[in-house]
């Protein structure tokens, strides 16, 4: 499974939850939304090997 955040990409094994995947790549789950294959999903969603998880930052500093 592929995790994308800003200009970084990670390869992780499937079978974990969205929340665990977000933590695994060192991002705070409170600070992002998760899109699995383009669809907004809750953090308990279990990811499959061929999923693509895109993290959208929600924190703005302006």
């Amino acid at each position: 499974m592929k995790v994308i955040y800003r200009d970084k990409t990670w390869e992780l094994r499937g079978g974990m939850t969205v929340r665990d995947a977000i933590r695994k790549v060192g991002v705070d789950p409170e600070a992002v939304l998760a899109l699995r294959n383009g669809v907004l999903v809750n953090e308990e969603t279990i990811l499959e090997d061929d999923d693509e998880l895109k993290l959208v930052a929600v924190v703005s500093g302006g």
Binding site: V32, L33, L40, V56, V59, S60, G61, G62
Partner: peptide, 29 residues
């Protein structure tokens, strides 16, 4: 912020995603 961002996303609102260059390292963050 997450709820507002989720709403914007689901409503298909195309907003500016990148930060203002001056917000980098802003204390708010």
């Amino acid at each position: 912020e997450r709820e507002v961002a989720a709403y914007a996303l689901l409503r298909g609102i195309d907003y500016i995603y990148d930060e203002c260059p001056h917000a980098q390292g802003a204390t708010t963050l």
